[in-house]
Write a protein that binds this DNA or RNA. Structure first.
Length: 237
DNA sequence: CCAGACGTTGTT
DNA sequence: GTCTGG
DNA sequence: CCAGACGTTGTT
DNA sequence: GTCTGG
C-alpha cells in the first residue's frame, strides 16, 4: 500500500517536471521527506479556467473524508482506495467520474515484514523524477461551516520487483496518462479506470533507517540507504 | 418503510 | 449521499 | 504507514 | 487489542 511518501523537489523543479501551469496551493512548499496521513500535501488537478485547460497544483489533506461523513476521524481509515473496487465502494464511486487528482510525490515507503521485524524501504525513480499517484478527492463541510478538502491514494497489485516488500503499491501515473486521469470533464471514468495498473517505469528500491517510522522526522537523512539489518537479536557470537 | 454502513492492510 | 439489509 | 493513547471528577 | 493522530 502506501502510507508515507516524499516530495523532495522544490517548487521550481515540480513546476518544470510536471509542466504545471497554475500554482494555487496555500503556503510555501518546502521539500518533504516524510509525508504522513492527515498532513497537507500537494496534488494536481485539471483546471478548465482561462486561459485554457491546464494542470494546477493545490493542497489537500491526506485521508479521505467523504461528504456524508459525520466524524472526520474516518480519514485515517481512508488513506488508500483499492483500485479494483473504486467504481463500487460507496466512499469512492461518486468520485471516480468527478474528482480525480494526482498526488505529487517523488518516492514512497513500504515496510518489509519479517516476523516481528519491520524494515522500511524507499522506492523512487533513480533519476529523481516525480511519481504522480492516482488519487480521488472530496470536500467535507464541518459543523462550523468550514470546508475540508481531502484525498486518498489509489492502489493496485504490486509489480514483480516490489512484491518482496508488499503485495500492493500505489498507482503511479505515466506522464502520457496524467491528463487522461486528471481531465474529469472530458474523460469518462471507464477510460480513467483503465489506468489503474502497476507502473511500468524505472523504480529503485533500498532499505532505510527506522527514523521514517516517526512522523517527527522529516529531513534528508530519512532517505539515506541503510545497511541491511545484521544480528539484531543476540547473534553477535 | 427506516437503520446502518460506507475502508484497507496485515495477521492469524 | 446512496445503497443494502431487515 | 507507525506511534501513542487508552479516563473521570473536582479543584485550581 | 484497537483506535486516533500525525
Amino acid at each position: 500500500m502506501c502510507g508515507r511518501f516524499t516530495l523532495t523537489q522544490d517548487r521550481k523543479s515540480i513546476v518544470e517536471d510536471l509542466e504545471v501551469a497554475e500554482w494555487s496551493a496555500a503556503g510555501e512548499h518546502r521539500p518533504r521527506f516524510n509525508v504522513a496521513p492527515t498532513q497537507s500535501a500537494l496534488v494536481l488537478t485539471w483546471s478548465d479556467e482561462a486561459p485554457g485547460s491546464h494542470r494546477a497544483v493545490r493542497d489537500m489533506r491526506w485521508g479521505l473524508v467523504p461528504g456524508w461523513a459525520k466524524d472526520p476521524a474516518i480519514a485515517s481509515k481512508l488513506i488508500n482506495a483499492r483500485g479494483e473496487s473504486i467504481a463500487e465502494k460507496p466512499s469512492f464511486r461518486n468520485l471516480v467520474g468527478r474528482r480525480r487528482c494526482a498526488v505529487i510525490t517523488d518516492g514512497f515507503f513500504e515496510w518489509k515484514k519479517d516476523g516481528k521485524a519491520s524494515v522500511p524501504h524507499y522506492i523512487h525513480d533513480p533519476a529523481g523524477k516525480a511519481l504522480p499517484m492516482a488519487g480521488l478527492w472530496d470536500v467535507w463541510k464541518a459543523p462550523d461551516d468550514t470546508y475540508l478538502t481531502t484525498f486518498t491514494i489509489v492502489t493496485t497489485e504490486a509489480r514483480s520487483d516490489i512484491t518482496f516488500l508488499h503485495d500492493r503499491m500505489p498507482v503511479i501515473l505515466a506522464r502520457d496518462d496524467l491528463d487522461t486521469w486528471l481531465d474529469v470533464a472530458h474523460v469518462p471514468k471507464e477510460k480513467a479506470l483503465a489506468l489503474v495498473k502497476a507502473y511500468a517505469g524505472p523504480l529503485e528500491t533500498f532499505p532505510v533507517s527506522k527514523l521514517v517510522n516517526s512522523v517527527r522526522y522529516d529531513s534528508a537523512e530519512i532517505i539515506r540507504r541503510a545497511d541491511p539489518e545484521v544480528g539484531t537479536q543476540g547473534s553477535l557470537f
